[in-house]
């Protein structure tokens, strides 16, 4: 069953077409990767799916329901959570406070919200920093906090926007491990990533965006050997012209 179904998705910003005719199908329980050069429209695609922008064209279905233009908080209640490429912690508050904002989605009790938030922090091996101010965290921990908060809302589908950017290699490996464990919990993962090594290791399928259009999709191996993808990433001059 496809948990997310995107058809003919298009988004314009004034005169700029950021997305054009994008099709995506994500099977429940899988890890789906989205790659593409800077400015390709990846984050815009996430923002359309998560309800930040209403798409200019096309249709987005989540669990079979058309969700075009629904508000982010309602989508979150339906089980669609996301992280931000540019992290947005509640900086003056503790890590625990941040995560509790997420866990309040399913409870009105502060005690219960705290209990669930601590569970999430345990799961992410993050509980030791529960009482640190979010603004004082390292980049790696801020990315982890983004995931922890989103996780506390108990999502079915989790959109991860470049959660590995800026991390050291060892931290990238940890993050890959975390994402696998999330998938093993039954959460479908839709992940944008720049680091090829990570996305290749993680994803069941990968789609490639370039100038707002999907230029390839397939298994990581298929995509990595696709000529259009190599061209998009490395530029025309690197491709040996066939004729």
């Amino acid at each position: 069953m496809n948990i997310l179904e995107v058809k003919e998705l298009g988004k314009d910003f004034g005169g700029l077409t950021a997305l054009q005719g994008v099709h995506l199908s994500i099977e429940a329980g899988r890890i789906f990767g989205l790659i593409g050069p800077n400015g390709a429209g990846k984050s815009t695609a996430f923002n359309c799916i998560a309800g930040v922008y209403a798409p200019t064209r096309g249709e987005i279905r989540f669990n079979g329901e058309v969700i075009n233009g629904q508000k982010p908080w309602n989508l979150c209640k339906k089980g669609l959570a996301r992280t931000f490429q540019i992290v947005k912690p509640f900086a003056s508050k503790t890590v625990l406070y941040n995560v509790m904002v997420g866990s309040f989605l399913h409870t009105n009790s502060t005690r219960e919200a705290r209990r669930r938030a601590l569970e999430v922090l345990e799961f992410l091996h993050f509980a030791g920093k529960a009482h640190m101010r979010a603004g004082d965290l390292t980049i790696a921990d801020r990315k982890r906090l983004e995931i922890a908060r989103a996780l506390a809302t108990r999502p079915k589908l989790l959109l991860l926007d470049e959660v590995m950017a800026g991390l050291r290699p060892a931290e990238v490996d940890q993050m890959v491990e975390i994402i696998r464990r999330l998938r093993d919990q039954g959460i479908t993962i839709f992940v944008i990533e720049h680091i090829m090594r990570a996305i290749m290791a993680l994803s069941d399928r990968v789609a490639v965006l370039h100038f707002g259009k999907k230029i390839a999709e397939g298994t990581p191996q298929e995509v990595a050997s696709d000529e259009r993808v190599i061209k998009a990433y490395l530029g025309e001059e690197y491709v040996v012209s066939g004729s």
């Binding site: 209640k77 959570a81 508050k93 904002v101 989605l105 409870t107």
Partner: peptide, 23 residues
């Protein structure tokens, strides 16, 4: 309370708060 957490979250980072289910 939940309201207090939601108010603080919405005041500090509205986009993040909305993404976490806060109206």
């Amino acid at each position: 309370s939940k309201l207090g957490y939601y108010l603080n979250a919405g005041g500090e980072e509205p986009d993040a708060a909305m993404a976490l289910g806060v109206n």
